[in-house]
């Protein structure tokens, strides 16, 4: 099986869907002539032309809204945010238009659109460019929210997102665009809303998504090696709708849960997970659910300070030991 980087998997997903459906187009800053700020769209302008690979000025609320308005007319826009930090400028378009128009119009209009780009901290970008928007968007009814961590998932889920009749927020990671993994040559789709067991285990359920997937996998390795703990690593892949069934099935098997979250703790996606777990599997829990999150502060630029604010495999390993009462 060929191996691709995540950026290549994203590119192939877009390319295949643009070939399949001429209503699909890509719009964003530097997506065309510059070939993409992170090269996700490299070669697409050459293949599809300026009509379908549309460079924009720096106008997030403008081109997010244009995408929504075009989707209401039956087009299938892929809107690239150079980073989801800039989506804050377009937040009203996503909150009040993309997510609500189908409802607000009594079902007369749909908004089949994908907003995609890198999310969460990268490396020493300072407080305004290091934020995780998972819980912001997952909070909003009317949206689907996807977060990918492997080339295989990125391609299969992005293709599903482009075909989805609803607005989809699609989180990637700047730090992970070069991550390689196997991707089949034949076409495949991954349904939105299904978690994936990235590493089976028996002792603790370890929930993660996006950037916390490699953190969780490294922590599971540490736990096996140093603590004789077998962690079941579940990559949520979709934050809305949540695959509650898969989560609860694992919790009922392990009776212990750690949530590794690249995001702030207050009102975070992990808080929603804790709520569901305590409601649906209270009698199966042998320990309080532990969360490992970003520090609850704006990020600093300095390398050491930033590093301290982000969950590291050692932190997650400690949490695994904690819920197993190993300390």
């Amino acid at each position: 099986m060929p191996t691709l980087q995540i950026r290549e998997a994203i590119r192939e997903a877009m390319r295949e869907e643009m070939v399949r459906d001429d209503k699909v187009f890509l719009m964003g800053e530097e997506v065309g002539h510059y070939q993409g700020a992170y090269k996700c769209s490299q070669g697409l302008l050459e293949q599809f032309g300026e009509k379908r690979v549309v460079d924009t000025p720096i106008t997030e609320t403008g081109f997010a809204g244009v995408g929504i308005g075009a989707a209401m007319c039956g087009l299938r826009p892929i809107i690239e945010f150079m980073t989801f930090n800039f989506s804050a400028v377009a937040f009203d378009q996503i909150l009040n238009n993309a997510a609500k128009i189908h409802h607000m119009t009594g079902g007369q209009f749909s908004v089949p659109i994908v907003f995609r780009g890198p999310n969460a901290a990268a490396h020493m970008l300072g407080s305004t460019h290091s934020q995780a928007f998972d819980s912001f968007y997952a909070h909003i009814p009317g949206l689907k929210v996807v977060s990918v961590a492997t080339p295989y998932d990125a391609k299969g889920l992005l293709k599903s997102a482009i075909r989805d009749p609803n607005p989809v927020i699609f989180f990637e990671s700047e730090l992970m665009y070069s991550v390689r993994g196997e991707v089949p040559e034949e076409e495949y789709l991954i349904p939105i809303g299904e978690a994936d067991i990235k590493r089976p285990g028996d002792d603790v359920t370890l929930l993660c998504w996006g950037q916390s997937v490699p953190t969780a996998l490294a922590a599971a390795e540490l736990a096996q090696e140093h603590s004789d703990l077998s962690a079941e690593v579940i990559d949520l892949r979709t934050l809305r709708p949540l695959d509650t069934e898969a989560i609860i099935a694992s919790v009922k098997k392990t009776n212990r849960v750690v949530i590794a979250e690249h995001g702030w703790p207050y009102g975070g996606v992990g808080a929603e997970l804790v709520d569901r777990i305590q409601r649906l599997a209270f009698d199966w829990l042998d320990a309080p659910v532990a969360r490992v999150c970003y520090d609850d502060i704006p990020f600093a630029y300095a390398e050491n300070l930033e590093h301290l604010s982000i969950p590291q495999p050692e932190d997650v390993h400690a949490a695994l030991r904690q819920v197993a009462y190993r300390d």
Partner: peptide
């Protein structure tokens, strides 16, 4: 206003 521009884009 961006929505209307989007209809026109379409």
């Amino acid at each position: 206003i961006p929505i209307a521009a989007g209809h026109a884009f379409a």
